[in-house]
């Protein structure tokens, strides 16, 4: 018992991993964390990256997560993984789109519909491009 720690990796859409581990390595927002059994209770945010689970019987498993939250208790690690890439302006774009769709729904379904839809798609595409660019810059560093 003492040499293993229970690890759950879940996302809103599925359970990804559940089992015991000798150690779990996660990409914490303020640096990577290696979590061994009896770690102090901790809450933190995760960056997009790799979660490495060292299995007690040797061997390891990798999971990619696109950010999320982490909870540690002495014998349980819970990785609450995001399903989508989250960034302030990506969320903002989604919110805008939802608002736009509402206006569209109220106004009328004829004529302007395709234009509004195209605009929403454009906005989304642009937001994604921006995110990509940032991602590239990070890689260069």
């Amino acid at each position: 018992m003492a040499s293993t720690i229970h690890c759950d990796i879940v996302s809103a859409e599925a359970e990804i991993f559940s089992g015991s581990a000798a150690m779990v390595v996660v990409p914490g927002e303020e640096g990577d964390l290696g979590i061994a059994p009896r770690h102090a209770p901790l809450l933190t945010r995760l960056r997009p990256g790799q979660v490495r689970v060292l299995l007690p019987e040797g061997g390891e498993e990798f999971y990619f997560i696109s950010g999320g939250l982490l909870e540690i208790q002495p014998h349980v690690v819970t990785v609450l993984s995001d399903t989508a890439q989250r960034a302030g302006d990506l969320d903002e774009a989604a919110a805008l789109k939802a608002k736009e769709e509402a206006e569209k729904a109220i106004a009328d379904r004829s004529a302007g519909m395709e234009v509004a839809q195209a605009q929403a798609q454009l906005a989304q595409a642009m937001a994604q491009l921006a995110a990509l660019e940032r991602f590239r810059k990070q890689l260069k560093r």
């Binding site: 809103a12 989508a84 989604a94």
Partner: peptide, 12 residues
């Protein structure tokens, strides 16, 4: 349904 599709409305 994907969570992604809901983020926008929930944020609003």
């Amino acid at each position: 349904p994907r969570l992604e599709d809901l983020i926008g409305v929930i944020k609003v």
